[in-house]
Amino acid sequence: MFSILRSLWLTFLHTFHKRFTIQYPEEKAKLPARWRGRIVLTRDPDGAERCVACYLCAAACPVDCISLQAAEDETGRRYPEFFRINFSRCIFCGFCEDACPTYAIQLTPDFELVEYDRQNLVYEKENLLISGPGKYHDYNFYRVAGYAVGGKGKGEAQHEDPPIDIHDLKP
């Protein structure tokens, strides 16, 4: 009985509390850097596209709203020939960012994605690709992978010995 009255009293005291509501759009919310909003594709510190078109984001996507096609440039570097996100389907779960092995796909603190025409919510690679590395400044997948691409040959990645000369007779 007392606890009920106490509850009523405590609730009543909230009359004099400050309100949490932010009066959007007059007032803007301060979003944390890891807010899961509009998706972008980032570039590595050298300025090249980070995405290697491994398809893991597309596979992880629970609403199947990511589609892409892998391609390879003349130096062997993989990149997406096209990369499409249908934001009218996206639920901003962030699984794609979790799945991405190269930190290419990242969610940003931007949620203002309103369009009058749903078709405008289909973003192609040119709409997604930004010019910086996003949240992860130093990571460069090809510096870690054993794959040879332009500017990095075999045995030049981190933790790699120079390529073996199979004609060498030493044991």
Partner: peptide, 16 residues
């Protein structure tokens, strides 16, 4: 069962 991109592969033509 892991087939991906169903809601996106044709979205450039028509979002529906």
């Amino acid at each position: 069962h892991r087939y991906s991109g169903r809601t996106s592969m044709n979205a450039n033509v028509n979002v529906s």
